[in-house]
């Protein structure tokens, strides 16, 4: 079980390979990666602010909650902060379990929770200037299904 918060890019392919190789006894690995959407070319860049200390703590709690709900043999969360360009990878999750249903459900759960329960804030830069991304009601609603 690993949580990493970093400014540096990560190698998605290598992370997935290493995660799968280490998933002893698992029959399924699910991976997901989030990218900076370019919003049809209007986004010039993004800055992600976070709360050092609480971020790691919140992600570890979310991961522990996922482990208590599904039979996971391993889980990984990597989330970046700092300046990001359109198309760059922001974050990834990986889950491993005996059967795929647990790994899929846990990966979706991790995504839903880290969108609105981990202290990250996105600021977008466009031609008009910079603006903080507003939280969406749908993201809050998504938590109710769990």
């Amino acid at each position: 079980m690993t949580v990493r918060v970093q400014a540096a890019p990560f190698a998605y392919g290598a992370e997935c390979e290493a995660f799968a190789a280490a998933a002893q006894g698992a029959g399924a690995v699910v991976t997901f990666c989030g990218l900076v959407r370019d919003n049809d070319g209007t986004l010039h860049g993004m800055e992600i602010e976070h709360y050092p200390g609480m971020t790691e703590r919140a992600l570890a709690k979310i991961e522990a909650e996922a482990r208590s709900r599904w039979a996971l043999s391993d889980a990984l969360i990597v989330h970046r902060h700092g300046p990001l360009a359109p198309g760059e990878m922001i974050m990834m999750v990986a889950t491993a379990s005996r059967h795929r249903a647990d790994a899929f459900a846990a990966a979706e759960f991790l995504m839903d929770y880290l969108k609105s329960r981990a202290p990250f804030w996105k600021k977008e830069r466009t031609e008009e200037g910079t603006a903080w991304v507003a939280a969406r009601d749908e993201d809050e609603d998504a938590l109710r299904r769990w």
Partner: peptide
């Protein structure tokens, strides 16, 4: 102290308090 809380919560024993907008991670 780095755990989400609410406005009615007591500050007794708290060392660090943070204010921020709704989170937009992922």
């Amino acid at each position: 102290d780095q755990d989400l809380s609410d406005f009615d919560a007591a500050l007794d024993g708290v060392r660090e308090i943070a204010f921020f907008p709704p989170m937009t991670g992922g």
